[in-house]
Design a binder for these strands. Structure first.
Lengths: 147, 147
DNA sequence: TTACCTGCAAACAGTTTGCAGGCCG
DNA sequence: CGGCCTGCAAACTGTTTGCAGGTAA
């Protein structure tokens, strides 16, 4: 399966005639090693623990590159900030999000996936991908009414 | 079917001890009559063609009320702005989108909905809503490979 | 009368951009 | 060496909030 996404990125950089700088390498490395759905701020903090000289702008610019290279995807949950998800091909999952505490549980259900295929077929479509977001309240937030 | 959402809103207002002002009535009216997925800016413009004295803040505040009343839902597509979708209770649907021609087929599958509930329950969640986007190629686009 | 509302403008937060110098290729 | 990159800070954009004066109930 998956080629190292870090390698994939440097290939993309080269193919586009761009430059493979230490900052880009560091950011990409942190992004793929860190937990998923990192926000720019989280990435910024993590990157700066390693190299405190990196600027926010470079984080944004590199994330945009990653998206253009189809190695990351921008997502919006509920808070005001964009989050980024690595696209690893074999890491597909859906999202179960608590609207009270923001907790984001990644889920997969093969039966749902199967029904999605069937549904699409019924309309003459062949699926290539999908996104599913389930919103609700997690057990702890139901116990302690937020507000 | 559906109770008039405009009525539902004034009921909500009354139930909360809030006030039914002309600005709110105007905004809510425009929101439900306009096309779906309006952005705040589009709403603002439309509202101001009728009453140029309404301020942006009131648009935002009223949209928040609509969301709290469960009559609208905030969504994020790709542009930097939030969009709002009316919740009409009987109008729930998911999206089956052709990535070649952009065709957007609205679909519903009760079996998938049931499995979503089960899945959420398994994680201790109680669902309030969900969004599902299926991406693929429709029959006509498979015949004529785009790109 | 009394909260609640409103428009305005200032405040905010996230993101983008212009610039002068730096560095990859 | 030339063009792409970088950090910085200022600029932008969408959204929220404080305030002083209205207004629904």
């Amino acid at each position: 399966m998956t080629l190292n996404p870090i390698k994939a990125f440097s290939d993309y950089i080269a193919a586009q005639g761009l430059k493979n700088t230490p900052q880009r390498r560091l950011i990409v490395d942190v992004f793929f090693k860190s937990g998923k759905h990192a926000s720019t701020e989280e990435l910024y903090d993590q990157v700066r623990t390693i190299d405190s000289g990196v600027g926010q702008a470079t984080i944004y610019r590199t994330l945009r590159l990653l998206c253009e290279a189809n190695l990351a995807r921008e997502m919006h949950f509920g808070d005001g900030t964009a989050r980024y998800e690595p696209i690893a091909d074999d890491s597909h999952h859906d999202h179960l999000i608590c609207t009270a505490c923001g907790r984001n549980q990644e889920v997969v259900d093969v039966n749902i996936e199967r029904l999605q295929e069937e549904l699409a077929t019924r309309y003459g479509f062949v699926l290539t991908s999908h996104r599913m977001y389930l919103y609700g309240l997690c057990s702890s937030c139901r116990g302690t009414p937020a507000k």
